[in-house]
Write a protein that binds this DNA or RNA. Structure first.
Lengths: 254, 254
DNA sequence: TAAGATAAGATGTACAGACAAATTATATTT
DNA sequence: AAATATAATTTGTCTGTACATCTTATCTTA
């Protein structure tokens, strides 16, 4: 007596068996057979139900992990964490340089370095409470001697203020210096991009008209505990810089 | 006579065997044993050299694929594509909406729709040859009746011009309408963000001063063959819109 | 020479079995 | 009843084998 469902020999569908199995299970999750938060059947149960080997089951579940629908823990089991396959587009960065999007030859030149208590405006921009203590490093990024790319204000924790002395020594990104010197790890980076007008004082330094358009990029670097340990605010005068993102549709064949 | 290298029983290092193997191979790539562009040993050769099963070898190579160091093709082999483990940060999008970054309630209102041959400036901006034929759809994105978010010029292929009639019907993103109606698939999306000044004519429509700062976003949608089938140019007056990216350090434990 | 058929080589898929490691449930002891 | 030890469960790692599928090289033929 056959007690298994036809995964091996389904209609006219082509492709590997684990993909067919993944499709079935994803469908069952979407239709509520295994609600979010509950546990999926064990590998052995799936093997028996569909009459396939553990290899096939694990390969199918691996796809579902990549799609962000399930989560597995050794000894515990498989839990459903999402009804829909997440991550339809993925951005891949090939290097740290692409995160900052400057060629390796640009250099940061420090103009000023001092402790500050952020005012209301700045607090809103960098996402913290007004009056918080930060160490602010004002600097300009140059392509060469006469070509300023952008003005950058770097905010670091007070205990990291000695960082200012190391900026400009080489072309290492600021947050990588922090990682190396102060033993923090950038686990998450949030970037906000918007348009604005440049301040009069900075306009002179950058060699553009006052209140001319700029692309402002605010980067927040968080460590493992979610604490923001660096914020940088960069202002790029129009025409000097383009921020590019390349997104690839992830390999879900759903 | 033992002719294999010790992967199974290395020093005091813990962890699975495939991880040890992956580390060794990554090291050899970095030190130039297998230069970028050349082919790695076959699975069977690695099995023999390290006295491990094909499972272990494939599991190791799978890690290296995830790191973007190698690329494999059935029947062909394994080629090295990068000296360093790539993808240090990954952006995950949970929905199409996050790609466009507009709340689901915004609507596009078509102002004009006509065939055009792009001039030199536009050609440079959207990345094609001057004189190319496109169908241009000018529109404005509104949050509600009186709140324009941005001006958007959508360029689609001439054979897709009937799309203009379907824009604004609902809140479906333009490229998704194309995917559904014309059977194309957005496999890759390239976005360029930069600052600029708004044109006089558009300034009036958007309710801002002429030549005031704008955030310009150019999105190019490519299909499986790499052909660009849609280009959109959005101009967001300063203060109306912020583009956010959230990057997570990828799980490579190298 | 060029086109097509054939063979060889490499990765992909699939099965079965075994043990390791982590978790959870159960039983035991205090 | 609570803490501890034990057993059962579940996923992780690993080996071996077999065949399928795709690619590339080689041979054959027109």
């Amino acid at each position: 007596m056959e007690n298994s469902e036809p995964v091996a020999d389904r209609g006219g569908a082509k492709g590997p068996r684990y993909q067919a199995l993944a499709d079935i299970l994803q469908n069952e999750i979407e239709s509520g057979v295994y609600p979010v938060g509950t546990r999926m059947p064990t590998e052995l149960e799936l093997c028996n139900r569909f009459s396939v080997s553990r290899f096939t089951v694990r390969e199918a579940l691996r796809r579902m992990i990549d799609n962000g629908m399930i989560l597995r823990r050794q000894g515990s089991g498989t839990v459903v964490v999402s009804k829909n396959p997440t991550t339809m587009f993925v951005q891949k960065l090939n290097s740290i340089d692409e995160l900052l999007q400057y060629s390796i030859d640009t250099r940061l030149k420090v103009k000023n370095s001092a402790a500050v208590e952020v005012d209301a405006n700045t607090a809103k921009m960098i996402g913290c409470e007004p009056g918080t203590s930060w160490h602010k490093i004002e600097s300009i990024r140059y392509l060469d001697e006469k070509s300023p790319i952008c003005w950058t204000d770097v905010y670091v924790l007070p205990e990291h203020k000695s960082l200012a002395d190391r900026i400009g020594e080489d072309t290492t990104p600021v947050f990588m210096v922090l990682e190396k010197e102060f033993n923090v790890v950038a686990e998450e980076v949030t970037m906000d991009l918007f348009a604005g007008s440049i301040e009069e004082s900075k306009a002179w330094e950058m060699g553009v008209e006052p209140s001319s358009p700029t692309l402002i990029i605010v980067r927040k670097y968080k460590d493992q505990n979610g604490r923001v340990f660096e914020v940088s605010v960069s202002e790029h005068p129009a025409g000097r810089f383009t921020f590019s993102i390349d997104l690839l549709r992830s390999s879900n064949t759903d």
